[in-house]
């Protein structure tokens, strides 16, 4: 069963999984090569800035992969009102887990290419003194972030329209409250508070706001 479910998700997502994998492989190269003009130590700070700037691409890539794999697992079932899936002789939770597991397998190529890209880019670059490569750490952070993004979007996409509506309503309430507070001249910053709540430990998205540095001090 897993094989055919995996095949179905692969079929639906292979069109963009390959480009994403290429991007994941290429980012480390650009991180270290673009704007890096030598080994003089006063260039090292520039290199770190460069790496930090390119590093912002990783959480974005992780979120994009999570969104694509998470939603593509469900989009075809949604189109058919889930009828096909629901008349298969398998419990709903088991079917969901099959789709979830298949998605996890599909995340692997992106994770591996990011790791290989990071490893290759640092392997072929002579880093200035004082700067070290962290390909494993970066790949580990990317893996966790991708996993989380995937899991989150998968859960939302697997829900009913009512569940998706509830999520959107909560987001809408936060935004509207912020707008009203702004109109009323209040210092209340709901958006920032909400952002902090989800990105600062033990917030679920903490791993996204960490340091995405392939090379660092």
């Amino acid at each position: 069963m897993l094989r055919i479910i995996l095949y179905s998700q692969w079929k639906w997502s292979r069109g963009w999984l390959l480009p994403v994998a290429v991007v994941g492989f290429a980012i480390p190269y650009f991180m270290l090569r673009v704007g890096y003009s030598g080994e003089r130590y006063w260039d090292a700070a520039g290199l770190l800035e460069q790496v930090a700037a390119w590093g912002r691409g990783y959480p974005a890539l992780a979120a994009a992969i999570g969104l694509l794999v998470g939603t593509s697992a469900w989009i075809h079932d949604h189109r058919g009102d889930h009828v096909y899936a629901l008349v298969l002789p398998t419990p709903r939770w088991y079917y969901v887990l099959l789709r979830y597991t298949a998605g996890l397998v599909l995340l692997a190529p992106a994770m591996i290419t990011v790791f290989l890209g990071a490893l290759t880019a640092t392997w072929f670059t002579t880093l200035p003194a004082g700067i070290y490569a962290y390909p494993i750490q970066l790949a580990a952070r990317f893996m966790l972030a991708t996993l989380l993004a995937y899991s989150l979007f998968f859960a939302i996409a697997s829900g009913t329209q009512r569940a998706a509506g509830a999520v959107l309503t909560i987001v809408g309430i936060v935004v509207v409250t912020q707008l009203l507070a702004g109109i009323a001249g209040s210092d209340l910053n709901v958006l920032e508070a909400a952002f902090d709540r989800i990105t600062i430990w033990p917030g679920p998205l903490e791993v996204f706001v960490g340091r995405w540095m392939l090379v660092d001090l």
Partner: peptide, 30 residues
């Protein structure tokens, strides 16, 4: 600057949320 490494507690929190969301998905209504 803080370490580039993912702190163990960060990793655990992330995995916790991964499991929670997976459970929520598995419990999605038929």
């Amino acid at each position: 600057p803080p370490s580039v490494e993912v702190q163990p507690r960060s990793a655990w929190v992330t995995l916790f949320w991964v499991v929670v969301t997976a459970f929520l998905a598995a419990g999605s209504s038929r």
